[in-house]
């Protein structure tokens, strides 16, 4: 037997084993019970339109707020990290290390209980949410943005400064726009992670109108003792995230062409 035939044989055996595994699991599962518990059409129908008009809307809104905050604050942190003034660099480094090292859930929780204690009043829910998620997002984005800025060739800054532009203006009009082009893919990654992290917001308490997707699904799971809501909610998550990653792929390709 030649080496090639040998390889083909091994590959065939692997395929057969894989197929047998899938069929085996499918036969072992209790399909009727599974269907009743996970794919209850009636229950799924009842979830509409609230799953979209309340839950999905909130998820998108929270993501948008946290992303905007994270981007602005992350840019500031990145610029501090690149600053020639040492205390700025230290401050930024410490911040980034702390909030990248802590579980996001812990940070959100601390913000949720910390603000009322520290300031004596509850802040508007949206502010608390933006901070809770955004504080963590900023730490991650700061590192991404820094990498983007450092990825811009040194000659760009030199050319801008040689024309008499100030450091700040060269950054704003020449370096940062180019840096952001470089980091569109990783930044989208952060966005998708952020969408999923909104599911952690339940720890700061919710009202019926402020539930995001997962909390919405879990509450229905509990009241109905049926997992169908989780399946529906999962599908809605994918409806948001998959087009997003596809869109970025298109943008990336267009970007590659224009460079």
């Amino acid at each position: 037997m030649t080496k090639r035939q040998q390889q083909r044989l091994i590959r065939s055996i692997l395929y057969v084993l894989f197929a047998a595994g899938v069929v085996g699991i499918a036969l072992l599962a209790d399909w009727e019970t599974t269907q009743r518990n996970f794919f209850n059409g009636e229950l799924a129908r009842q979830m509409f339109p609230d799953v979209l008009t309340i839950a999905a809307r909130n998820t998108i809104l929270y993501t948008f707020l946290a992303f905007s905050f994270g981007l602005a604050f992350g840019l500031l942190l990145a610029l501090m990290r690149l600053s020639s003034i040492a205390p700025y660099r230290w401050l930024s480094t410490v911040y980034i290390e702390i909030f990248r090292g802590l579980p996001a859930l812990l940070t959100i929780f601390l913000v949720g209980i910390g603000i009322p204690i520290a300031f004596g009043t509850r802040w508007p829910t949206l502010v608390t949410i933006t901070l809770g998620l955004g504080i963590v997002a900023a730490a991650y984005m700061a590192e991404t943005i820094r990498a983007g800025i450092e990825g811009v060739p040194k000659g760009q800054m030199e050319a801008a400064r040689s024309l008499g532009m100030s450091y700040t203006w060269a950054m704003v009009s020449i370096i940062i726009p180019q840096g952001f082009r470089i980091i569109i893919p990783p930044l989208t990654n952060e966005l998708v992670l952020l969408i999923k992290d909104t599911s952690l917001l339940f720890v700061i308490g919710t009202t019926p109108a402020s539930k995001e997707l997962l909390k919405f699904g879990r509450d229905l799971l509990n009241t109905n003792a049926n997992a169908t809501p989780l399946i529906v909610v999962g599908a809605v998550y994918l409806m948001i995230t998959v087009p997003l990653t596809q869109l970025v792929r298109v943008l990336e390709r267009r970007n590659a062409r224009s460079r």
């Binding site: 000659g155 024309l163 532009m165």
Partner: peptide, 30 residues
């Protein structure tokens, strides 16, 4: 610096701007 025109070995044009904007951006700002 704005009194000294500088030309680099590697050109260092701003790739994200059109030729016209490459030429106007510093004029306007500086």
């Amino acid at each position: 610096r704005s009194r000294i025109g500088m030309v680099f070995q590697s050109f260092n044009l701003f790739p994200h701007l059109s030729v016209l904007r490459n030429l106007t951006i510093a004029q306007r700002r500086v």
